[in-house]
Design a binder for these strands. Structure first.
Lengths: 238, 238
DNA sequence: GCTAATATACTTGTATACAAGTTAAACAAG
DNA sequence: CTTGTTTAACTTGTATACAAGTATATTAGC
């Protein structure tokens, strides 16, 4: 199995989840092209496991709309630039909801937690560890989302998370080599989020969202299907 | 298999989905109590199918947070009144997003479609068909949501839909017997939605949401865990 | 050459088998 | 009676077997 997805993150998860994580990365990084037809037997040979975990994996990816389970074979749907925009629409929608709730409660503990994660993000940058940075970045946002203790918002995020993780991972690996200076801005954005929560300043929240959104837009502009970018993403081994 | 979930709606779906649909209804209607431990073997005996489809079903319910897959057995989490409120938070969030998009496009076709569905809802009421009414109600909202052609908003809805379907189904079956007059108000609400789209009137959208929300609140107030209500829901066979 | 029936080589859905792990009861030693 | 160990009956994860369905290639009839 090509190590697109960091092995240590998989922990003790089942084979099905491992296969899903790998396939997800390969699909999103365009290593497996759109409209490819995957069959359970073929994948079970490729990954050297039986059909059972392969089936589990395909079911997972179907829920994420990365593949479509047809009568014969699973067709790869993949990710377009439009999808990336849409995913950030959804993230923005969810986090906006969360911030509205955050403004009505005490967030002392949350702020401490966020500061801790942010410091770790800085260390990750210092050592040019794109993977670690990514997971701390995700954790930062997840910490905010789960802080309002809204189970169903949490479920939405949990369903979205795997794909977001992949996208951010690929993006960060690329930036770490090509746009190292970007990270200062990313850190500044996250500091803005903390300040916004601290001061319960709606204006600041808007600004943080706006900057984050712009940052994403920039990523999306053409970069995504730049062959050079994809090649680098695909060649990356841990 | 007790026919909590209308058989004809399952069409040609796999055994796993059928079992999931049944378990979902039983869990949400409190026929299977919170903290119950389900095992694959036990369920496979109960439903007279092998473990494979049972596993599929449990995976589906896990994604909906209705059960938690433990090391030994799947623990039933179930639904509380708080969950119902949260689910409506999420529906409101999604539909608000959708309406913002709807205001920027032509909706002639959509309005026709909604009018058709609404007329069918009226027929369903006339014949006191709670099941048909429910599915048309869901279809009404789904039609609005999918009209903006936003794939990832669609995915969120698709993940939420099964649980919403159950909740509305149980609620409507109850109301059809106990609060038949409610349906006039529900119809009026939906007419309001159509008008709001037709006139692209944000004020009207707000009002429609507000009324819909209030209607739901009323349902949620105590009714949910009223034993009489649950009994009726559980006794219902198709 | 063209059309229609048939054969075959795939596919998935479900059932079953087996290995590895977990729980809890039975039981032995103190 | 309490504590620690063994054992037995469960559990899930994975592998494999089989049935039923589908697409494609092939062949028969014209």
């Amino acid at each position: 199995m090509k190590a697109f997805y960091p092995e240590q993150r998989l922990g003790s998860s089942s084979m099905g989840e491992r296969v899903a994580a790998d396939l997800r990365m390969r699909i999103i990084s365009n290593d497996i092209e759109k409209e490819t037809l995957l069959s359970e037997n073929q994948l079970s040979k490729e990954y050297q496991v039986s059909r059972s975990p392969i089936r589990d994996a395909l079911k997972l990816l179907e829920k994420e709309d990365l593949i479509e389970l047809k009568k014969m074979g699973a067709e790869v749907i993949g990710i377009t630039e439009k999808d990336i925009e849409e995913i950030y629409d959804v993230r923005l929608m969810i986090e906006s909801f969360v911030f509205r709730r955050i403004l009505n409660k005490d967030n002392q503990q949350l702020i401490l937690e966020l500061q801790k994660i942010l410091e770790m993000m800085k260390i990750a940058i210092k050592y040019k560890d794109a993977t670690e940075f990514t997971f701390k970045d995700i954790e930062f946002h997840e910490t905010i989302i789960t802080s309002i203790q809204h189970r169903h918002i949490g479920i939405l995020w949990a369903n979205l998370k795997p794909v977001v993780e992949c996208l951010v991972l690929l993006d960060m690996r690329h930036r770490m080599q090509e746009n190292y200076e970007d990270f200062e801005r990313v850190i500044a954005n996250h500091e803005l989020f903390i300040q916004a929560i601290e001061k319960k300043d709606e204006q600041l929240v808007e600004e943080a969202f706006y900057k984050n959104f712009n940052d994403v837009q920039k990523q999306s502009e053409g970069l995504w299907h730049n062959p050079e970018y994809l090649k680098r993403a695909s060649d990356y081994h841990e």
